[in-house]
Amino acid sequence: MSPLEKLFANLPRLPSMPRVVQDLIASLCKDDVDIGSLVAQVKQDQSLSARVLAMANSSAYGASKKIGAIDQAVTMIGLSALRSIVIASGMSRTFAKVEGVDMKVFWRHAMISASVARVMGKREGVNPEFAYTAGLMHRVGQLIIHLAHPGVAKQLERAHAPTGLEMLKVERSLIEVDHCEVGSELALHWNFPPEIQNALRWYVEPLNPAAGLLAAVVHLSTQIAQRLDNGETPEQIADELDEAVLARLSLERADALWRIESCKDLPAATELLM
C-alpha cells in the first residue's frame, strides 16, 4: 500500500459532497446546463437559498426592490455566481469542523483565492469555472491530513508555518506525501475534471513539466489573494509576481496588474459567500 493509500485508509470516513454540488461540478464541462434542475435543488436547501438571496439583494447587483424568489435571484446573479455559492457552500459544509484548523480563516482565504483565480483564469486555454473550483480547493489536502493524522497535523502546526515548497518538504518528511498529492487524490475520488486534479497536484510547483496552465493560475491567485487580504496595493503585488510563472501564462506584468486591480474588492465581497 502506498503512503497515499495509507493516508486515505486512515480516514475515519471519506468526506462526501452534497448532491447539488456534484451536479454543478459535472455541469462545468457542459454547455447545456439544466438550470431549472439546479434551482430546484437550491430551493430544497435553506442555507443555500439564503445565500443566493443575500447575494441577489446585495449592493453589487443593485436590485431596485427586494428579491424574495430564488428563481428571480438566480436570474439576477447568473449561473457563474450560482456555481460560486453552491460550490463554496458545499465545500465549507463538507469540512465544517477540523480539529486544529480555524475554518473561518481557512475558507476565507480559499474563497478569495477562488474568486481571484476566476479573474486570472480568463486566459486562452483556461476554463474560469475550473479556475474558481481549483482555487477554492487548493489547500483541501491539508484538511484531509488533519483528519487522517491529527498527531502529524500538530507537528505541522509547530513547524513555524512554512509555505510553498518548504511546506511540502515538511509534510513529506512526516507522512511521505504532501497536501498537493492528497488534494489531487480527493478530487479524483470526487470525480472532478482531470484539469482540476492536475492543478491541485502542481499549484505549488507550477513550472513542473507535468503542470498544466491551471496550476500556474492557482499558484498566482493564492499569492494575490493573501496579499490583497493583507492590504497590499495591486502595484505592490504585481511587482512581486514570479516572472517565470507569468511567462508560463504568457501574461505581461501590466496585464496582471489590471487584473489584480479588478480583484481588489474581492476580500470584502467574499463575506457574501461565507
Results as ranks from 00 to 15, higher is better:
T222Q: 10
A187G: 11
G151T: 11
E252R: 07
V105S: 10
H146V: 12
V152T: 10
L48Q: 13
H219F: 11
R108P: 00
F106I: 06
I175W: 01
A161P: 12
R93W: 00
S58L: 03
T163E: 09
A247Q: 09
D34F: 10
D239T: 10
E252H: 12
V177Y: 11
Y203H: 13
K66R: 13
V177R: 00
S84K: 07
T133K: 04
A81F: 08
A117G: 15
E171Y: 07
E240N: 13
A69E: 12
W202L: 11
H109R: 14
L11C: 10
V217G: 09
Q236E: 08
V217W: 06
L214W: 02
V105H: 15
E124W: 05
E205V: 15
S262Y: 08
A26C: 01
P194S: 04
K97R: 08
E176M: 03
P128K: 01
K66T: 09
N191W: 10
A225I: 05
Q72G: 02
R83M: 02
E271Y: 06
L228G: 00
H219R: 04
L48M: 02
Y132T: 06
L241F: 11
A269L: 15
S49M: 14
L266H: 06
I85H: 01
T75E: 13
E5I: 10
L48N: 05
G212H: 02
L143P: 05
H219P: 14
C29K: 04
V98I: 09
A73Q: 03
S59I: 13
A187S: 14
I144Y: 05
A50H: 05
A50R: 13
G36E: 00
E271G: 11
Y61M: 08
S89G: 12
V105T: 13
R172G: 14
A148D: 01
G141F: 12
G62L: 01
L143M: 04
V119Q: 14
W107L: 04
H189S: 00
L257F: 07
L214T: 04
D242L: 02
Q155W: 08
D255W: 07
A211C: 09
L241T: 14
A73V: 03
S184G: 13
A187K: 08
E232Y: 08
L220H: 08
Q236M: 13
P193N: 05
L136C: 12
A159P: 06
K264G: 12
A131I: 12
F192P: 15
A81T: 13
S173L: 07
E261Y: 04
V170R: 11
A26H: 07
E271T: 10
A256I: 03
I196G: 11
L174H: 02
S49D: 03
T270E: 06
Q226A: 12
S115D: 11
E166D: 13
G141S: 00
Y203S: 14
K66G: 01
L136Q: 08
E271A: 15
M1L: 14
L220E: 01
L14K: 07
A238Y: 03
M167D: 06
K169G: 00
A254P: 09
S173F: 09
L273M: 04
G141C: 03
H149P: 09
E181K: 12
